[in-house]
Write a protein that binds this DNA or RNA. Structure first.
Lengths: 195, 195
DNA sequence: TCTCCGCCTTGACCTGGGTCAACCCGAGAG
DNA sequence: CTCTCGGGTTGACCCAGGTCAAGGCGGAGA
């Protein structure tokens, strides 16, 4: 077993026979990414995903207006991939970019599919993953519905303390749905108010 | 079988043995709701959900500021319930209200849990449901990130043509994340521009 | 050392939407 | 027939955040 810690984490979610995990490991491959390198680029088929072993990534989409918005940041232990597109068997509309030099463990969806045929544990895991991501998205929806940009900022740092110093401010702005100028002003306003 | 059409729809998602469906039907109960009546009220345990047989429902949450925001509208054939809270075994923070007199088919999560022990099809269905809801939420997130209120309005009616005339304007506003005054103005602005 | 570049800040100005308050209108109820 | 009430509209005013443009600043490379 090459990734016992990862196995540990997964098994906490859904019991996973170690033989099954060994099979999965055999199908996975490690990949190193430079800062700014894309793990997924828009237009590509959404046929793979990965677990972050090292580094921070951002999932970005550029709108019709040409504005970049950040859908999520992902760090060690989390999944990266164009999930929604994968589920809908569409080409990716999302870019996934390394914000630092990183390492990931890549799986082909096709391989996972094959594993699912062999043991129900993989379907159960897929369910957990879907449910977890649903909860994340719903939380974010709620934030857009009833928080101001400033409140969303505060909440962002509460929810992502591990990203301190690892993501540029402009990306935080793009995550909050505001411009970098607006974010800069919100921060200076708070500096003044709080001390 | 009491609900063959519903069985049809589900089976299109995930093959469901008819015996299993019959078991589920036996556990479900029909409930009639008056206009304005709540199917779920905030604070209650999130221990049940339902399929809408008739009527339109809204899922509402009131923010700390006391503002109502609408998370979703649900009509015939769709699911209602405090899904996120259910997954997290929390009391509901959401109210689910009938906007018209309605009928629903109610399931206890506990019962579904029991069914899952008996046959994998229920887990598969749960996975599909989670994935589907994820996609819906992500779409909405994207709309908040890169559309104006007016564009969200247009998209809303494109995505929910069946709600025309069935939901009050103020609730559409609460769904879009704006006030009813703002929505009214956006509409009159468009009336002027377009003719 | 100087320069360039990526990232952040600041200013001036504009605009969409929030807030508060008045008003309108159509449908039931008495 | 009138009153009331729920839902929608309109106006006046304000403010958060967008836009455009000009710096500022620290670090890497020549």
């Amino acid at each position: 077993m090459r990734f016992p810690k990862l196995y540990e984490r997964l098994t906490a979610q859904v019991p996973l026979p170690s033989e099954e995990w060994e099979k999965a490991e055999a199908l996975a491959s490690e990949r190193v990414l430079a800062k700014r390198e894309l793990f997924v680029r828009p237009g590509e088929p959404a046929d793979r995903f990965a677990v972050v072993l090292q580094g921070v990534f951002r999932a970005v989409r550029v709108s019709a207006r040409g504005v970049e918005s950040v859908k999520a940041f992902r760090a060690e232990g989390e999944l990266i991939g164009a999930y929604a597109e994968m589920l809908q068997r569409q080409p990716s509309m999302t870019a996934i970019e390394a914000l630092e030099p990183g390492r990931v463990l890549v799986f082909q969806t096709r391989d996972l599919h094959a594993l699912e045929q062999g043991h129900v544990c993989w379907e159960r895991l897929a369910r957990r993953v879907a449910e977890h991501h649903f909860i994340l998205k719903e939380r974010r929806e709620q934030e857009f519905l009833d928080l101001t940009a400033e409140e969303r900022l505060v909440r962002f740092w509460e929810e992502h303390p591990h990203l301190k110093g690892r993501v540029p401010q402009r990306d935080v702005a793009a995550y909050l749905g505001i411009t970098e100028e607006a974010l800069s002003r919100i921060m200076s306003r708070r500096r003044k108010r709080k001390g």
